[in-house]
Simulated scan of single mutants.
Amino acid sequence: MFEKIYSPVQKLELFPFTQLFVKRDDLIDPYISGNKWRKLKYLLLSANNAHKSHLITFGGAYSNHLVATAAAASRSGLKATAFVRGESVENEMLMLCKLFGMKLIFTDRESYKNKKSLFERYFKLDEDAFFIDEGGASEEATIGCSEIISELDHTYDHIFCAAGTGTTAAGLLKGIQDRGLKTKLHVIPVLKGGSFIRNEIEKYTPISNHLELHLDYHFGGYAKTTPELIEFIKFFTAKTGLLIDPVYTAKMFFSISDLQKQNALNPNDKILAIHTGGLLGMFGMKDKF
């Protein structure tokens, strides 16, 4: 299932940029999308090597990670259970999870904070259970995400990615370092107070001068938006034909545009944006449009 992927690099026609490209990880799979596919690739290999057949993971009610894990488990002949943060709800994302056979356990927000404790409480006696952290955060995930760099046929002055847990960014930084590139990695935390992302990245790979965090593009916090961001999404998608989501990729592309306006980026620099997928999450914000 994880052998061949379709993730081309596409040039975007967006003034004033002359060399703006996007890595289309959103095209890898409709449900195991973008960086979720890359994170789960080696996690499922680890589960297989450990002879585990029951994936246990965590996420919010509109989590792309939950859908991806449910789909990956179903296709691999595995069971899957997810602890869902918050009160019991029904929505399009959780419907997909259940269709793929995933069992859902709704969990109050305080208990959810200690994921290892939840895993032990419910699945200590389940010898087939395999722990997968929220968003797939793990050493295995960084290895999968680092492969983005090895797939590139050209070098870039700048690579941009959005960050929630920092795992994808860690993989990208590792890939840049391993190949000895001079590329600058720009990471856009989508959470308010995203400076912790640096520490998360450092868990997996040494921090180097390749890394630059931009902390002012969270638009109020995780899954938060403003009218300005929504208008940007409408403009960008109509202009480029590329769908972007309000939680991650819209904030990343907004940052690229804004940094150019501040003269922090030269519009003639060769820039690559990583489209990490997650478009299904737009269902949770359909009222914004």
Rank of each mutant, 00 (worst) to 15 (best):
T167W: 02
A223F: 10
G101Y: 11
K174S: 11
S63K: 09
K239R: 15
K288S: 02
E127S: 15
Y62P: 01
K270N: 09
S195N: 14
L211G: 01
H51I: 12
Y122S: 12
G281H: 03
E200S: 13
G136P: 00
G60E: 00
F123M: 04
T276F: 02
N35C: 06
I256H: 04
I159D: 06
E3M: 06
L243Q: 07
F83N: 10
Y222H: 11
Y156H: 09
N48G: 02
T226R: 14
E90C: 05
A238L: 11
E134A: 15
N35F: 04
T226A: 02
H275G: 06
P267F: 07
G194C: 11
L191G: 00
K251Q: 05
D269T: 08
T155N: 13
F235M: 09
L94R: 05
K124V: 04
I230T: 12
I132H: 10
K4Y: 09
T107K: 06
K270Y: 08
P189G: 00
L211Y: 03
Y112N: 08
Y222M: 05
S88Q: 10
K286V: 15
K239L: 07
P189L: 07
F254N: 03
L185C: 07
G277F: 01
P227M: 05
C145W: 02
K103H: 13
M285L: 09
D245G: 12
G136S: 09
G164T: 10
F2Y: 14
F58C: 14
I143D: 02
F58P: 14
G194Q: 11
I233L: 07
P8I: 14
T237I: 04
I56W: 07
K11M: 13
F119L: 11
E134Q: 11
F289M: 07
I256L: 13
A73D: 01
A73T: 02
D133I: 00
K36S: 07
D245Y: 06
D25M: 04
T249Q: 02
P267A: 01
E200V: 02
A82S: 11
N48R: 15
E110K: 14
A223M: 12
E127L: 08
E110M: 08
G34W: 01
I271T: 05
A61R: 03
V247H: 01
P246G: 03
E92W: 00
Y204T: 10
F283Y: 13
L259I: 08
G281F: 05
T237V: 13
M95L: 10
V190L: 12
E231K: 15
S46I: 01
Y248W: 06
T69M: 10
R75C: 08
A223H: 06
K288D: 03
G241S: 08
H218Q: 09
V187C: 04
Q260R: 10
T249M: 05
S138G: 13
A61F: 01
Q260W: 12
N263F: 12
R109K: 14
K98R: 15
K286R: 06
A141G: 12
I233T: 03
F131Y: 15
K4P: 00
I5L: 14
F130G: 11
T107F: 06
F130K: 11
T276R: 10
K36W: 03
K113Y: 02
E3D: 12
I274G: 02
P206C: 15
G194S: 12
L215R: 12
F119I: 00
F160R: 06
F119E: 09
